[in-house]
Amino acid sequence: MIRALGASYRYPGEGQVVAPVDLAIHASDVTALFGPNGSGKTTLGKLLAGILKPTSGRVEILGEDTRTLSLGRIGQRLGYLFQEPDRQIFTARVDEELALAQRLRGVPEDDVLGRVEEMLDRFRLEHLRDAFPFDLSRGEKQRLALAAIMINRPPFLVLDEPTTALDVVRKAELSALLSQATEGGVGMLIISHDRSFVARHATRILELSRGEIVDDYSVR
């Protein structure tokens, strides 16, 4: 799915954040990226998802160099959930938010409406259908953002800290949603420092420390 070949990253004017890494991520796995704050998880995740272009080396998504892929085309190959939910909400209503990308992608209106209903139901957002997304709680916003990504049915998901704002019940619900997606054949890269959550889903664990992968092992 994703291949890194000696890929490294540094922010302009900063030191190296991700050391050169060789890595292959498979869509058949649920890969967890693990590490302390500031170890470069988000940066590596963005690098692998093609949002950041490597300073040296290269990253391929389905065999294509991320340097030649526009963000829009990357978005058709994978879905990316940002750590910060506020910056990925665009509209003034929950149901519009779900429909937005579908409409812009030219999906027929009937299909869009059907999928919106399906997502509202699956993510338990029906009662919030006409709510103003920015007034939702952080957990609800995150659920909405995830639903707005899943509605596009990406074959692969990159999730940056999907559990941070969730209470126990919500976490269990998210777990169920993700399991459902995995059973449907969706591969995932989950960035998290929640060990128990990771243990429930991951088939492979990458441990990151100061921008270097220090451990890489399969579970189950």
Partner: peptide, 23 residues
Amino acid sequence: EAEDTLTALQLRGVRLEELPLRT
């Protein structure tokens, strides 16, 4: 923020570069 938002929108598979100008 505006840049991040633009990134997030495109990452939903919206190929901005191929949309008609008005859209």
